[in-house]
Amino acid sequence: MRRTLFLLIFGFAGLGALLSLGIWQVQRLAWKQEVLAEIDARISAAPIGLPSQISESEHKYLPVSVSGEMQPGEIHVLVSVKQVGAGYRIIQSFSTEDRIILVDRGFVPTTAKQTDRLTGPMEVTGNLHWPDEIDSYTPEADIDSNIWFARDLPNLAAALGAEPILLIARSQTDPGVTPLPVDTAGIPNDHLQYAITWFGLALVWAAMTGYFLWRNRAPSESDPQ
Rank of each mutant, 00 (worst) to 15 (best):
M1R: 13
R2F: 03
R2S: 03
L5A: 08
L8F: 11
I9H: 11
I9V: 12
F12G: 02
A13M: 06
A17Q: 03
G22L: 03
I23H: 11
W24F: 01
A30M: 11
W31K: 14
Q33G: 07
V35S: 08
L36Y: 14
A37S: 14
E38A: 07
I39P: 07
D40G: 08
R42H: 09
A45P: 15
P47G: 06
G49I: 01
L50N: 09
S52F: 10
E56H: 12
Y61P: 15
L62G: 12
V64F: 12
V64E: 11
V64A: 09
S65Q: 07
E69P: 10
E74Q: 15
H76T: 09
V77W: 01
V77M: 08
L78H: 14
V81E: 12
G85S: 15
Y88D: 10
I91M: 07
I91F: 04
F94L: 03
I101L: 13
L102H: 12
F107W: 12
V108D: 02
Q114A: 10
L118G: 13
T119P: 15
T119C: 11
P121A: 05
E123V: 09
L128C: 05
D132M: 12
D132A: 14
D132S: 14
I134Q: 11
D135C: 00
D135K: 06
A141Q: 01
D142K: 14
D144C: 08
I147Y: 00
R151G: 13
N155T: 11
L156D: 10
A157V: 12
A157W: 15
L166I: 00
I168T: 03
Q172I: 04
V177D: 04
P179K: 01
L180F: 09
V182Q: 03
V182S: 04
T184K: 07
T184H: 02
G186K: 10
I187V: 06
I187Q: 06
P188L: 00
P188T: 01
N189Q: 04
N189E: 01
L192E: 12
L192T: 13
L192K: 05
A195D: 04
A195Q: 05
W198A: 03
W198G: 10
W198Q: 07
F199C: 04
F199E: 08
G200C: 11
W205A: 06
A206T: 00
A206M: 02
A207K: 11
M208E: 03
T209C: 10
G210W: 07
F212M: 02
W214E: 05
R217W: 09
P219S: 03
E221W: 10
D223P: 05
P224T: 12
Q225V: 02
Q225P: 07
